[in-house]
């Protein structure tokens, strides 16, 4: 459980040479995805995403704050992730380590750069009061690909959020009371899809074992053909042609994931 052994890694690599994976999937095939909303009544919006045995909870909370000086008429977004020790023997308590920070940042950038949230509409009074949207991501069980699960969860949680009641006179948010108003979002959703390179092969939705032996990881956040965030991870290099293959692969699975998310939102 703690580390994938060399023998297992070798076997995974050899299988992939023949286009096969341990769980019988094709290289471009996701595990079963289930999406549930409303996991906490006290959140503005929330989602539970399962991809195979991997599970994450994502919740949205909002608060009214003073805007940043460089964006006096725009709301804020704060994405944080926590890899709960509950979810894996590999995670420990204590200050966030790099994977936790990176996870939050990748999801943050995808949402921010795609302009999925209309921050201008989240301004209450220029220079004085704006909404902050907090997206908090928690791992519940890690069997690989927490990244894509978190990205899907963040979108679904945002989509089903209701803005809390703000008492303008008192200048206070009435936590627990919600308006019928939704967070102003763009029509097209942004989905992160992560592709891994193992040997000379490329796969999506890795299990933990596959993630362990992955040489390069590229996460591509895109909405209907427009890419708005990329993160290459791993200390190995990538050829240009390989990047093109990754882009093609991520584009190929995008539609499938998109229709699954859309279905869950109905």
């Amino acid at each position: 459980m703690i580390e994938t052994s060399d023998i297992t890694g070798e076997r995974i690599r050899r299988y992939l040479e023949e286009g096969k994976r341990f769980d019988g999937r094709k290289p471009d095939e996701f595990r079963e995805i289930t999406i549930e909303t409303g996991i906490s009544k006290n959140a503005e919006g929330s989602a539970r995403v399962k991809i195979g045995k991997t599970e994450v909870f994502v919740g949205v909370k909002m608060d009214v704050v003073e805007p940043y000086p460089d964006s006096p008429d725009r709301g804020n977004l704060i994405v944080s992730a926590e890899l709960l020790p509950l979810s894996s023997p590999r995670f420990e308590n204590g200050p966030p380590k790099f994977p936790t920070i990176e996870l939050g940042r990748i999801i943050d950038r995808g949402i921010r750069e795609s302009e999925f949230i209309d921050f201008e509409k989240l301004c209450i009074k220029k220079g004085e009061k704006v909404w902050t949207v907090f997206i908090d991501i928690y791992s519940i069980n890690d069997d690989g690909n927490l990244l894509d699960a978190s990205g899907i969860g963040a979108i679904v949680a945002l989509k089903n959020s209701k803005i809390p009641v703000y008492d303008k006179k008192e200048g206070k948010v009435l936590f627990g009371e919600r308006t019928k108003e939704k967070i102003p979002l763009a029509k097209d959703i942004i989905i992160p899809i992560t592709v891994h390179k193992i040997g000379d092969n490329f796969i999506v939705d890795p299990t933990l074992e596959e993630e362990d032996i992955s040489e390069v990881r590229v996460t591509i956040g895109s909405s209907k053909g427009v890419i708005s965030s990329i993160q290459k991870g791993g200390d190995k290099s990538l050829k240009t042609e390989e990047l093109y293959r990754i882009l093609d692969l991520s584009e190929k699975v995008w539609d499938e994931i998109y229709s699954k998310i859309e279905k869950s939102l109905k």
């Binding site: 906490s40 006290n42 959140a43 919740g59 608060d63 020790p85 907090f134 908090d136 936590f175």
Partner: peptide
Amino acid sequence: CNYNMLSFSVNERIRP
């Protein structure tokens, strides 16, 4: 034992 509340388990968000 290690007890913790998710930030959005309550009405007023808990700082991690």
